[in-house]
């Protein structure tokens, strides 16, 4: 009897264990893996996310005018595994904490995120490229003594040439000193 009262007291002090959702917003941990979000600014179109995606939820294809590409994530086949986020070289992909996913059948094929990402024209030759994101450039040119920030708007081959030329010049000036 005494034990029973003790238990009752403990349980009363503890309060209900029921999660107040849906009456109140539920607690969502910071690391919760919810819907995939793409930052079009950072995306370079390398397709590694597409390669990693086991659910086949990512589709990347040039638009009709070939002036950019369409990046589509269909949430209804996304396994929320985070492989795209983990292997994205520019961290353009994040997983939001949004888990409000229930929707009616009419919205089944609308339950997707569409991004339209334009190509830029290479400042050197005019080819369609994606700008090299600064963080990636910082990693690529980590060992270079020269400031390479303005090379970002060049296509890979123009950039290679320009970078090599600059390092040469910089080496020459160093030698002269």
């Amino acid at each position: 009897m005494f034990r029973f009262l003790k238990l009752l007291g403990k349980n009363l002090a503890q309060g209900p264990s029921t999660d107040p959702f849906p009456a109140k917003e539920a607690h969502t941990p910071e690391r919760f893996r919810g819907r995939v979000v793409v930052n079009p600014e950072q995306c370079v179109g390398c397709r590694i996310c597409h390669h990693m995606c086991a659910g086949g939820a990512i589709r990347i294809e040039d638009n009709e005018e070939k002036t950019g590409y369409n990046f589509t994530v269909w949430h209804n086949t996304c396994a929320l595994c985070g492989m795209c986020r983990h292997y994205c070289p520019t961290k353009a992909i994040t997983l939001s904490t949004d888990w409000h996913n229930a929707h009616t059948q009419e919205d089944k094929y609308d339950w997707a995120a569409h991004y339209s990402i334009p190509y830029l024209a290479c400042a050197g030759c005019g080819a369609h490229i994606r700008m090299l994101p600064p963080q990636l450039a910082a990693r690529l040119y980590a060992h270079s003594p020269v400031d390479m920030t303005d090379l970002l708007k060049l296509c890979p081959s123009c950039r290679q040439l320009a970078a090599a030329r600059r390092e040469e010049i910089s080496n020459d000036t160093h030698e002269q000193e």
Binding site: P29, E30, R31, F32, R33, L80, G82, M83, H86, L95
Partner: peptide
């Protein structure tokens, strides 16, 4: 599991050569 790995069932902790989180 949900706080550390982000899902209550599938942790997605492993990858080739190590862990993701």
């Amino acid at each position: 599991k949900e706080t550390v790995y982000g899902n209550r069932m599938d942790l997605a902790a492993n990858t080739l050569g190590g862990v993701k989180n």
